[in-house]
Design a protein around this nucleic acid. Structure first.
Lengths: 156, 156
DNA sequence: GAATATTACCCACTATTACCCACAATATTA
DNA sequence: TAATATTGTGGGTAATAGTGGGTAATATTC
């Protein structure tokens, strides 16, 4: 039995392949820490930097709640809400543990046969390996000083 | 019964071997000081300088808590979270007290049959002996001033 | 409504992992 | 010192995981 403490908490990088039908396996390690009330259901949507974000149903619901509290009067908020929900799609995994990705999302993330699936705490990310490596090595967006501050607060 | 004060606190260096299935024994001395709530579970991940870091579940949990407080909206935070969690993997030790290392981590640390397992306070480190010796004798990375500062803070 | 594409639901095969049991070497206890 | 328990290491086997594909049901298009 899986510990409560690790539920819906994902980390690690895995290499998987998409088949001709657009299906990808959800890594077994991730399926094992899903809380039961997710009911095999994920929400897939556009992530930042050309990846696909995969949220367990329960986690997604919390996000929606948060969004609904944002006032729709502010243009910023409206934009953020639209951006987050517009490309979202609900999927269930099959007997073999695979979900089917939508064509628009596959295209958005530029996915080929091989993909990386990485755990990002409350969600998963699906990447074209090349894209991830590029984003990873490109630290022009990253402020080294802030990183250093973060590292001081969180003892590794 | 083990004293609270020594729980999840590791010291010393041991020599062990990895078998053909990628399993390594967790030294008995280390298993004995694990707090029960770890439930035989570790998180293994990439360490600095080509070693593998092995965190008891409870220790890791504190790190994750810190990370969860960071918003994913900031690129800096996303980068830091991904960097920290990307190569992590949850493992349990078996009846014989062994954990199974993942292929990517074995490769990263350049592990052969023989390894050193050393206690590093809140975590363990698994090294290829050659790599450790090299890192150990090469102190060009060490900033003497920082060492001096550390020595002032921590009475040895 | 017919033709075509898409999806849901099976089944099958292979590689990997989890779960045993075994045993020698070392440590502990009587 | 003899007996017993623990530790480190190896290996066999059943179960699981990852991947591919067939086909019937459903949806879409003309």
């Amino acid at each position: 039995m899986v510990k409560k403490i690790t539920q819906n908490s994902f980390f690690g990088q895995y290499s998987y392949s998409i088949d001709t039908k657009g299906r990808v396996n959800i890594p077994a390690k991730f399926r094992q820490v899903l809380s039961n009330d997710n009911d095999k259901t994920f929400i897939i949507t556009r992530g930042e930097e050309r990846c696909i974000w995969v949220y367990p149903l329960i986690v997604w619901q919390v996000i929606v709640e948060g969004l609904s509290k944002l006032s729709a009067v502010s243009p910023n908020n409206r934009h953020f809400i639209r951006k987050t929900t517009r490309y979202a799609s609900l999927v269930e995994y099959d007997k073999q543990g695979r979900i089917m990705l939508t064509k628009p999302l596959i295209e958005y993330a530029g996915l080929d046969k091989e993909v990386y699936i990485i755990g990002a705490l409350n969600k998963l990310e699906i990447w074209n390996p090349e894209t991830l490596d590029k984003v990873d090595s490109d630290d022009t967006n990253i402020d080294a000083l802030t990183l250093h501050e973060l590292a001081k607060e969180i003892i590794l």
